[in-house]
Amino acid sequence: MSILQRDQVWPFLVPREVKVDVSHQVILYIEDLSVSFDGFKALNNLNLYINDGELRCLIGANGAGKTTLMDVITGKTRCDSGSVWFGQTHNLLEKREADIARLGIGRKFQKPTVFEAHTVLDNLELALNTHKGILPALVARLSAGQRERIDEVMEIIGLQQQRHMLAGALSHGQKQWLEIGMLLAAEPRLLLIDEPVAGMTAQETERTAELLTSLAGHHTVVVVEHDMEFVRSIARTVTVLHQGSVLAEGSMDEVQNNRDVIDVYLGESA
């Protein structure tokens, strides 16, 4: 048997490509979704449609249902009723968290969860879209294509010069970018990003806006954020949640001038 070459990747180690039917231009269908916790309606007959390749911002006060919605999409929380479809053919409510991730849905939480004792390069290599079992970990080698993908992600997140730096030594903003890069390394179709600019400097916030805006098109990006200035800088469509339902939807200007939104969140008089 010949010695395994550095660029060789055995076929059984490469995950199958998942087909997502977006022939109607919609990648995420959420209809009549309800979730209750001890009698509290976290989601209340919520309806939401996300187009393929768009950048959507979700805003709303604490308790509006934003986190619960993401939990249902990713399989972390089960709903009481309703439906959630990824494209035309994948019923997410029938799938486990790991299966949903393999479909191409990646989630980034507010606090960055990188491997701080490993380098930026190591973090991205670990996140590549390959099987993660014991045998693959023992025998897999990066192909030329995988190394190229890591280099592409490095450029997208702007951490080329930090590639050999320990992740724990990065700034808060850089850790956030690295975690976004780890999601990108797995080549997701849908990115769910939770409060990406919390704790960032103004310069880091601006860079994050550029990063997320650049991802839309090739990926579908859903951002949950409380910083309204940041939302304004990236928003194409904004969805406002209130008491587990959609209160308003449209451009940032349309949302800010919506009477229901003003009454609920701003408390301004007519």
Rank of each mutant, 00 (worst) to 15 (best):
N45H: 10
G39W: 01
G65L: 02
I262H: 02
L183P: 03
E94N: 09
A186N: 09
V224L: 04
I193L: 05
A137M: 03
L93S: 13
G158A: 14
V238Q: 05
Q160P: 03
A216H: 10
N62L: 09
V35R: 00
W10V: 15
G87P: 02
V246H: 03
L13I: 14
D52A: 06
I30N: 05
L166Q: 13
L69M: 01
I27H: 01
E155T: 15
A137L: 05
R107C: 01
L46S: 08
V84K: 12
G104N: 01
P11L: 10
A61V: 14
I262P: 02
A198V: 14
A202W: 05
G173V: 07
I73D: 02
G63R: 00
Q203F: 02
L135E: 04
L126A: 04
S269G: 09
T67L: 11
N258E: 06
E155N: 12
M165E: 15
I156G: 04
V14G: 02
E254W: 08
R149W: 01
S214F: 13
D7C: 08
R163C: 10
L191R: 11
S36V: 05
F115D: 01
M165A: 13
S143W: 08
A198S: 14
G104W: 01
L69Y: 01
N62D: 03
A117F: 08
Y265H: 01
S251I: 07
S36P: 00
S214N: 13
L93H: 12
E187H: 11
G217I: 12
V35W: 00
K132Y: 08
A140C: 14
N62I: 13
V222R: 00
S34V: 15
L138N: 07
T68M: 05
L58W: 05
